[in-house]
């Protein structure tokens, strides 16, 4: 197995003037090209992890390695170039006066020559399908569009990893789908590693792997299939199971012998059809 792109070893963190740990003894890794979801209720410590990963917060204990190197003062700026973070509030991360200015912001910070900037902006805007909006001011864009601009701003730096920190939680269903679709495409076509931090298990169900956080600690880790077997344990820590999983368990209670596991609605229909035709 190749060396993981990200590894976190025994990381703990406390906010100033707080006695409780926001994150306690957390360890996990991410492989290149993987879609990893960190799930947990509000206040479970998942956003704190995101902030530590790009050096906005420093762990009290433990080590974070990215691209095989330890995250510290010497490497933090390189990490911020290679890892992009999309925040929750679409408005409060839009720095530029227009879409193109905003995409340029991170390029300017990294001292990219102007001619190359123009090229990279054009490429990034195309990847998020926002070409017609290049000269728009932020207040003329929807929430979903603003988040796609944020993603373009990251893509322009040709990143290895994108972190979505509750990036869809303030969007309407349409905006949410736009953003997830964009990231999914980038993950598949360009093998950009995605770390999605969310409390929406429906969204997390599409990840390759899930990490469940509860009260600052890792409660479980595994494929969606393995995680959703935990069933009501997830509900007890404030999460909501995907629809097909809830439906499946209701049907089993009623004596329909569905196998235990995770399904999409389509798979559920197929399973039911198989059972039905066997009768």
């Amino acid at each position: 197995m190749a060396e993981p792109i990200l590894s976190i070893e025994g990381v703990s963190f406390r906010y100033p003037n707080q006695s409780d740990y926001a994150v306690q003894n957390v360890s996990f890794t991410a492989e290149r090209g993987e879609w990893l979801a960190i799930v947990g209720h509000n206040g479970s410590g998942k956003s704190t992890i995101a902030r530590m990963l790009i050096g906005l917060l420093r762990p009290e204990r433990g080590a974070i390695r990215l691209f095989g190197r330890l995250l510290n003062d010497a490497t933090v700026w390189e990490v911020r170039r290679r890892v992009g973070l999309v925040f929750q509030n679409p408005d409060n991360q839009f720095v530029g006066a227009t879409v193109e200015d905003d995409i340029a912001f991170a390029l300017e910070n990294n001292g990219i020559p102007r001619l190359e900037m123009v090229e990279r902006i054009r490429e990034a805007i195309r990847q998020v399908h926002m070409e017609p909006f290049l000269h728009y001011e932020p207040h003329r864009l929807s929430g979903g569009q603003k988040q796609r601009v944020a993603i373009a701003g990251i893509l322009a730096l040709r990143p290895d990893m994108i972190i979505l920190d509750e990036a869809t939680s303030m969007l309407d269903p349409r905006g949410r789908e736009e953003v997830l679709e964009t990231v999914r495409r980038l993950n598949r076509q360009q093998r950009i590693t995605v770390l999605s931090i969310t409390h929406d298990l429906e969204e997390a169900a599409k990840a390759d792997r899930l990490i469940v956080m509860n009260k600052g600690e890792v409660m479980a880790e595994g494929t969606p299939e393995q995680i959703f077997r935990l069933g009501s344990k997830l509900e007890r820590i404030g999460l909501d199971l995907p629809f097909a999983v809830k439906m499946g368990s209701r049907l089993r209670e009623r004596g329909i012998p569905l196998r235990i596991g995770y399904f999409t609605t389509e798979e559920l229909v197929e399973e039911l059809w198989t059972l039905y035709s066997k009768k």
């Binding site: 991360q93 200015d101 340029a104 991170a106 300017e108 910070n109 990294n110 990219i112 102007r114």
Partner: peptide, 18 residues
């Protein structure tokens, strides 16, 4: 926070788009 995350560290070594 977002500006820092996007690599902003003052005017030093910065290029200009406009």
């Amino acid at each position: 926070t977002a500006m820092e995350a996007r690599g902003y560290r003052g005017g030093e070594g910065r290029t200009k788009f406009r």
